[in-house]
C-alpha cells in the first residue's frame, strides 16, 4: 500500500516533468534553450519515472533492468545534448541571449515584418522551407 503510494508519487512527478519538458520543446525560442528542456525530460523525468517503477517492482530482474536503463538514460542523455550543442556551435548557430532578444524585438518593432521573438512560428516555417542546410551564415534566418 505504502509502496503503491510512493511509486505513484514518483511516477506522477515524472509524468509532470515530462509534460513540462514537452512544453519547453515547443515554446522555447532557440536550439540551446530547447536543449535544456530536453535534458529535463531525459534526466529528471526519466529518473523519477524509473525510480517509481523500481520502487514498485522491488528487487528483482525487472528492477535490475530498470536500474541499468536509468543509468544509461541518465548519463547518455546529457552526452547527446552536449554533442548537439557542440555541433551547433561549431556550425555557427549563436545562442539567443537576452540582450539579443531585446535587439531582435526592437528590430521587429521597427520593421513591419513579423519577426517577433514570441511568435516563433512564422520565421520557423520560412526558414525550414528555405532549407538552411548546415553552412552556418544563413542561420540568421530564424529569429
Amino acid at each position: 500500500m505504502l509502496v503503491d503510494l510512493i511509486s505513484g508519487l514518483f511516477i506522477g512527478a515524472g509524468g509532470l516533468f515530462v509534460l513540462i519538458g514537452a512544453l519547453g520543446i515547443i515554446r522555447l525560442p532557440d536550439v540551446f534553450s530547447r536543449m535544456q528542456s530536453v535534458s529535463l525530460i531525459e534526466t529528471v523525468g526519466a529518473g523519477l519515472l524509473c525510480m517509481g517503477f523500481i520502487v514498485k517492482v522491488g528487487f528483482s530482474l525487472v528492477g535490475l533492468k530498470l536500474i541499468l536503463l536509468l543509468t544509461i538514460i541518465f548519463f547518455l542523455g546529457p552526452v547527446v545534448t552536449h554533442a548537439v550543442a557542440q555541433a551547433a556551435l561549431a556550425a555557427g548557430v549563436k545562442p539567443l541571449l537576452v540582450h539579443d532578444r531585446r535587439s531582435a524585438a526592437t528590430k521587429a518593432d521597427a520593421q513591419p515584418v513579423s519577426a517577433s521573438v514570441d511568435k516563433i512560428k512564422t520565421p520557423n516555417v520560412k526558414a525550414s522551407v528555405k532549407k538552411a542546410l548546415p553552412k552556418s551564415g544563413s542561420k540568421k534566418a530564424d529569429i
Partner: peptide
C-alpha cells in the same frame, strides 16, 4: 528551423520511446 532542432527532436523521440 534548422538541422539541430530536428536532431534534438529526433533524439527526444527516441528517449520518449524508451520511456
Amino acid at each position: 528551423p534548422n538541422i539541430f532542432d530536428r536532431m534534438l527532436a529526433a533524439n527526444t523521440i527516441g528517449s520518449l520511446a524508451v520511456l
